[in-house]
Measured scan of single mutants.
Amino acid sequence: MATKAVCVLKGDGPVQGIINFEQKESNGPVKVWGSIKGLTEGLHGFHVHEFGDNTAGCTSAGPHFNPLSRKHGGPKDEERHVGDLGNVTADKDGVADVSIEDSVISLSGDHCIIGRTLVVHEKADDLGKGGNEESTKTGNAGSRLACGVIGIAQ
């Protein structure tokens, strides 16, 4: 089992970053940390998408990683996509320092995120509470600013 993974985020604009993942036990939580720069100040949706395909930019990554066919939600919700990591918060300089621990994603097994795409979005994720159909699919997080395929790390 891989215990570490990394993702280099890039987009068409100024947004870029490096996100690290570490899972010490196969059924334990995954620590997610790193930094994203070039964002507007505020909240930005942060999700693992189904495919590791960036051939047409971030759009070819498909929908959120959702092997259990659930509705979109927040990272602490029972009803959520596996890939729903909530929001990252950018400061006035456009930098989001990421520090998350998640017990639904994994670096092995059915919820493995390796080979899938991590995406940072234009807007805040409403965590499935926006009151419309799009909220239950995407959290109304808007366009995909930057993305990268999650790969095994040393």
Rank of each mutant, 00 (worst) to 15 (best):
Ala2Lys: 15
Ala2Phe: 09
Thr3Asn: 14
Thr3Pro: 05
Thr3Ser: 11
Ala5Gln: 05
Ala5Gly: 13
Ala5Val: 13
Val6Tyr: 07
Val6Gly: 06
Val6Leu: 11
Cys7Gly: 08
Val8Phe: 05
Val8Cys: 14
Val8Ile: 14
Lys10Ile: 14
Lys10Glu: 15
Lys10Met: 13
Gly13Gln: 10
Val15Lys: 07
Val15Gln: 10
Gly17Val: 00
Gly17Gln: 01
Ile18Arg: 10
Ile18Met: 07
Ile19Gln: 03
Ile19Trp: 00
Asn20Trp: 09
Glu22Asp: 10
Glu22Leu: 10
Glu22Gln: 08
Glu22Ser: 10
Glu22Cys: 09
Gln23Trp: 08
Glu25Lys: 05
Glu25Pro: 15
Glu25Ile: 15
Ser26Gly: 10
Ser26His: 15
Gly28Trp: 06
Pro29Arg: 14
Val30Lys: 03
Lys31Leu: 07
Val32Ile: 08
Val32Leu: 09
Val32Cys: 12
Gly34Leu: 03
Ile36Leu: 14
Ile36Lys: 00
Ile36Cys: 11
Lys37Arg: 14
Lys37Glu: 12
Thr40Lys: 14
Glu41Ile: 14
Gly42Arg: 08
Leu43Gln: 11
Leu43Pro: 10
Gly45Leu: 00
Gly45Ser: 03
Phe46Ala: 11
His47Leu: 02
His47Arg: 02
Val48Pro: 00
His49Ala: 02
His49Arg: 01
Glu50Asn: 06
Thr55His: 04
Ala56Glu: 09
Gly57Ala: 03
Cys58Arg: 03
Thr59Asn: 05
Ser60Pro: 01
Ser60Ile: 01
Ser60Arg: 02
Ser60Thr: 08
Ala61Ser: 09
Ala61Pro: 02
Ala61Tyr: 02
Gly62Leu: 02
His64Lys: 01
Phe65Met: 12
Asn66Gly: 09
Pro67Val: 14
Ser69Cys: 15
Arg70Asn: 08
Arg70Ser: 08
Arg70Tyr: 14
Lys71Glu: 14
Lys71Trp: 12
Lys71Arg: 13
Lys71Gly: 12
His72Cys: 00
Gly74Met: 11
Pro75Trp: 13
Lys76Thr: 14
Lys76Met: 13
Asp77Arg: 12
Glu78His: 10
Glu78Ile: 09
Glu79Pro: 11
Arg80Lys: 07
Val82Ala: 10
Gly83Cys: 02
Asp84Met: 02
Gly86Trp: 01
Gly86Gln: 05
Val88Leu: 12
Val88Ala: 15
Thr89Pro: 13
Thr89Phe: 06
Ala90Arg: 05
Ala90Ile: 11
Asp91Gly: 09
Asp93Thr: 10
Val95Ala: 08
Val95Phe: 07
Ala96Ile: 07
Asp97Phe: 11
Asp97Gly: 14
Asp97Val: 08
Val98Ile: 03
Val98Ala: 09
Ser99Gly: 15
Ile100Gly: 11
Glu101Pro: 05
Glu101Leu: 13
Glu101Ile: 10
Asp102Glu: 12
Ser103Gln: 06
Ser103Met: 15
Ser103Val: 14
Ser103Asp: 09
Val104Trp: 11
Ile105Arg: 02
Ser106Ile: 06
Ser108Tyr: 12
Ser108Ile: 05
Ser108Cys: 09
Cys112Gln: 15
Cys112Tyr: 11
Ile113Asn: 02
Ile114Val: 11
Gly115Asp: 01
Gly115Leu: 02
Arg116Trp: 00
Arg116Ser: 01
Thr117Gly: 09
Thr117His: 02
Thr117Asp: 08
Val119Tyr: 00
Val120Glu: 01
His121Gly: 00
Glu122Leu: 13
Lys123Ala: 12
Lys123Cys: 11
Ala124Gln: 07
Ala124Gly: 14
Asp125Cys: 05
Asp126Glu: 03
Asp126Ala: 02
Leu127Arg: 07
Gly128Glu: 01
Gly128Cys: 07
Gly128Ser: 07
Lys129Asp: 10
Lys129Ser: 10
Glu133Asp: 09
Glu134Trp: 11
Ser135Tyr: 03
Ser135Gly: 05
Ser135Lys: 02
Thr136Gly: 08
Lys137Arg: 08
Thr138Ala: 05
Gly139Trp: 02
Gly139His: 04
Gly139Pro: 00
Asn140Pro: 01
Ala141Pro: 03
Ser143Ile: 14
Ser143Gln: 04
Ser143Phe: 06
Arg144Lys: 03
Arg144Leu: 03
Leu145Ile: 13
Ala146His: 05
Ala146Lys: 03
Val149Met: 07
Val149Lys: 01
